[in-house]
């Protein structure tokens, strides 16, 4: 039986969250449909003419199809770095969990360091220049991997602890080598946590603004987050196109959220319960 407080409280909560959380998104959607003169008013009024499609076409054509290039760049960046994060992170988490050695202590320390230390920006740029990777997508991919490894390893190590060692031992007796055991037996069993890592990291990397700003400057290589600045200028902002672009780059995380809601929450709440 639900007590009245749960019903009235629920209704109040629905009203408040709708105003606080839905209205800003509504504002984006409404203004993405207006003409540039109407959107310049920055109000919630319904558009006089619905022109989402025209705005969309205009956003895509701006600066020689820069948004399309940016989507391609962001997709390559996300897929490549998340792939490496999964494979390399799982390899480290596996050995770290299975075999305590002289490396365990330093590795644990470095994982924590990776979680809390803010990256040193200018020395990294200097290094990337030295390696010929500054302003290249390859360089940014490796940067995202370096910055995301700690979190991936933590998730993998915790999950691998739940896989019985007897499985590895049976495989060893059957004569399987380390590569066979890891890629043939362990990795397939890691599927739930692999999905979590993929989903959480790809949202983070797709939404990343700071690292592309520092390590991949220039319009030619823009990632999606930087395209917003195409429509934003101090004196002449095209609000309708700006909000259409925001709408466009919100769609991928929205799709991911609809399908992988559970995995995202699982990944982000790891550590909330004393294990």
């Amino acid at each position: 039986m639900r007590r009245p407080i749960h019903i009235w409280g629920g209704i109040a909560a629905i009203l408040i969250t709708t105003v606080v959380f839905i209205v800003p998104f509504l504002f984006i959607v409404v203004n993405a449909m207006k003409s540039s003169r109407e959107a310049a008013m920055r109000s919630f009024a319904m558009p006089a003419v619905w022109r989402l499609w025209d705005n969309l076409v205009e956003v895509i054509q701006t600066r020689d199809y820069m948004v399309l290039t940016a989507f391609v760049n962001s997709t390559i960046l996300t897929v490549a770095s998340v792939t490496m994060l999964v494979i390399f992170g799982a390899m480290v988490g596996y050995v770290l969990q299975r075999r305590p050695s002289i490396w365990t202590g330093p590795a644990n320390f470095l994982i924590l360091a990776g979680l809390i230390i803010p990256p040193a920006v200018v020395p990294t740029i200097w290094l990337l220049q030295g390696l010929g990777l500054f302003k290249t997508l390859h360089g940014l991919i490796l940067i995202e991997v370096a910055y995301g490894l700690s979190f991936s390893v933590l998730l993998f190590r915790a999950f691998i602890a739940t896989i019985p060692r007897e499985l590895d031992e049976a495989a060893i007796i059957d004569g399987a080598g380390p590569m066979r055991i890891f890629f043939g037996i362990i990795l397939p069993l890691l599927r739930p946590v692999v999905v979590t890592v993929i989903v959480v990291q790809s949202v983070a990397i797709f939404n990343d603004f700071t690292n592309p700003l520092y390590y991949l400057p220039g319009n030619k290589n823009a990632t999606v987050q930087l395209t917003l600045y195409n429509f934003l200028s101090q004196f002449n902002t095209s609000y309708n196109l700006l909000f259409t672009d925001i709408l466009l780059i919100t769609i991928p995380p929205l799709i991911v959220y609809i399908f992988f809601n559970r995995q995202i929450v699982a990944g982000l709440t790891a550590g909330a319960v004393k294990g």
């Binding site: 494979i87 390399f88 050695s101 290094l127 991997v145 495989a171």
Partner: peptide, 24 residues
């Protein structure tokens, strides 16, 4: 069956692109 070189790819990327600039 748990070879140390499994650390290697991650250690190289992390060491070169994160640890080295931090120390520098």
């Amino acid at each position: 069956p748990y070879p140390s070189w499994f650390y290697l790819p991650a250690a190289i990327i992390y060491g070169v692109l994160f640890l080295f600039p931090t120390v520098a």
